[in-house]
């Protein structure tokens, strides 16, 4: 299933549009939040992440006929988003900011958690993209290593190694002198 497969054929009659609209709206309401978080950890910028999610859904709308089962929607949308992110950098050189230099928003529920989230987020942001991306797909998306392997076009063994190393590196970063991480038992 590819997002570009059906871009060329768009049922544009009023009836067809009306039928597709509720399905599309349900998709947006169900997946936009999760997709934003995935986009955020891909690019590290709030505004760019919102743009990516919007572009993803607009592309999904044009290819909605390619989505045969709603249960596959999350993986389908993640794939479109990742391609859209790649296209973004193909189209024009973006002003690059290292994700580790960015200020990360903190939506922790209470002051007692604020430090904890900030420390861990900074550590996640420091991970190489090849480790961060499968980890985000696994932890946020709930995908299995096999599903991640299909999405990233890697072997399942390679994904298992990457997410294993991602966790090891995170623990090493947290162990690397941050007392707050120790305090909260995250290291």
């Amino acid at each position: 299933m590819t997002d570009s497969a059906s871009e060329g054929r768009n049922p544009r009659s009023t009836a067809a549009v009306s039928n597709r609209q509720p399905q599309f709206e349900a998709l947006v309401r169900a997946h936009s939040g999760e997709l934003y978080r995935y986009a955020y950890w891909l690019c590290g910028q709030d505004a760019l992440a919102q743009d990516l999610v919007q572009e993803t859904f607009l592309r999904a709308w044009r290819s909605l006929d390619a989505l045969r089962e709603n249960v596959a929607a999350k993986a389908w949308l993640s794939t479109i988003l990742r391609r859209e992110h790649a296209r973004l950098y193909e189209r024009k050189p973006m002003p690059t900011t290292d994700i580790s230099e960015l200020e990360l928003p903190d939506n922790a529920p209470g002051p007692e958690h604020r430090g904890e989230d900030a420390v861990l987020r900074a550590a996640i942001a420091k991970l190489d993209a090849k480790y961060r991306e499968p980890l985000v797909l696994q932890v946020l998306g709930g995908f299995s290593c096999e599903e991640i392997a299909r999405q990233l076009q890697l072997s399942e063994a390679a994904v298992m190694t990457q997410v294993f190393r991602a966790r090891q590196k995170l623990k090493a970063l947290l162990d690397g002198g941050d007392e707050e991480a120790h305090l909260h038992g995250l290291s």
Partner: peptide, 19 residues
């Protein structure tokens, strides 16, 4: 802790703006 840290705040009204 990892899941909580990754769950950054989703901008208000994002779904409405997309629609």
């Amino acid at each position: 802790g990892l899941a909580q840290a990754m769950a950054v705040l989703v901008p208000t009204g994002l779904a409405d703006r997309i629609l």
